[in-house]
Amino acid sequence: MNPTNYLYLSAILFSIGAVGVVVRRNAIVVFMCIELMLNAANLAFVTFANMTGNLQGQVMAFFTMVVAACEVVVGLAIIVTIYRSRRSASVDDASLLSR
């Protein structure tokens, strides 16, 4: 099977994740959509590794995972902090910047 199909899948998943980040208001869901986008990118990396015949892409995907883990840890901590002060996990409620 042509590995390009994985790339198409990756592009579609990435776009879906992007829509999710924009349209969902629950901060946790927004985060999950970001994870979806990162995973889509990982899929592309792994596919590239497969196509080029070396493991560089896989290593890159590995690093992406670690960074994603960091991002989740800090991001969720931020969500908890915001929730603690605002009693809400909606990203629209934290819009003080406009005022």
């Binding site: 590995p3 946790i28 590794a49 590995f62």
Partner: peptide, 22 residues
């Protein structure tokens, strides 16, 4: 796609740890 290590890590780290965190 011949990336068994990443596949396992994906399940253990993502589906396990990260999703548990979520």
């Amino acid at each position: 796609q011949d990336a068994p290590f990443l596949g396992i890590v994906q399940i253990v780290v993502y589906t396990g740890a990260v999703m548990m965190l979520f």
